[in-house]
Design a protein around this nucleic acid. Sequence first.
DNA 1: AGCGTATAGTTTGACGCCCAACTAAATGCC
DNA 2: GGCATTTAGTTGGGCGTCAAACTATACGCT
Lengths: 170, 170
Amino acid sequence: MHGTNGLSRTNGLGGRRRGRNGEAIGLSVDFGPLAHWVGFNLRMAQEAAFQAFSHLSQEIGESPGRFATLTLIARNPGISQTELSLANGRDKSSLTPVVEDLVKRGLIERKRMDSDRRTYRLYLTSSGKKVLTMLTRCARRHERNLDRVIGERDRKRFIQILKKIAADLG
Amino acid sequence: MHGTNGLSRTNGLGGRRRGRNGEAIGLSVDFGPLAHWVGFNLRMAQEAAFQAFSHLSQEIGESPGRFATLTLIARNPGISQTELSLANGRDKSSLTPVVEDLVKRGLIERKRMDSDRRTYRLYLTSSGKKVLTMLTRCARRHERNLDRVIGERDRKRFIQILKKIAADLG
DNA sequence: AGCGTATAGTTTGACGCCCAACTAAATGCC
DNA sequence: GGCATTTAGTTGGGCGTCAAACTATACGCT
């Protein structure tokens, strides 16, 4: 160890680098304009939140990506895969393997429609409902953690802004 | 088309579904608890912002992921790959192909250290600086768009909260 | 009825990411 | 000096994602 290691990730603002002879060194990194930009911080926050939820949901043996999918099916029984993928913000092709897996594991059911034999309709099975209940508990715990970080005062406004970003840039 | 299609993505809040006989249908989707949860909205916002920047940066023929990497090298000349990956919030192994590509295209330079022959030090080349300048212009445009959506009044606080989430959950 | 167009879902290929295992080099301890 | 431990970076496997091409159904117009 030569003194160039041991990066601290703690200081949220890009810390000053303490260049000796023009070289950059550890212990703090200059984030430059990244520190003030929304895009970068949005990515870092999302990543951190996702990781945290991922750990929680892994405790009950479910992948975090399944959660939004199951919730949306539960709230919109009979939803089609395309509608689902739009609501979930993913390409419809990404949904194919997910749906396959959920069907195989008996968490959801797909039915062909009579009137339009192209579309499927998706429904939660009772075992899917059980899993969703557990995942939801998990998510609530996660949300409580986030709420503590954000603070009750700013929470509503914060979510409003997130929604606005998703809507206006979509 | 049977009336079950044409999902509207516009209404940010999970709209009411208009179930006829218990079936869910298009035109609006019930997001249930997802609508109020930070995690979901964080993901949607990040995805939207990323997509938007991706389109902008593709106009100048660069992948959006390169941007933070180049900026961090520019601000911290001689940074090591591990430091870089930490600052950037990615696994160090993800950096290997990126660095390879950037070196091959002449945007950065790697030098072995004499004192510790395991670590590389990364530097921007002059052509790398040119590319970064273009990318930065691009990013500023992107940020202006985001600022318009967020509003100048909330911007500072918003970024503060994002930073706090990344720091506290990291 | 028939043909062109639109739509639902799948397939394929590429990419970026993580994690775990690995190699090479440095450090610490005896 | 020698050997266990730590560290920097790479490799390989797997996963989730997108975009484009594809299949099949449905719709509209004449």
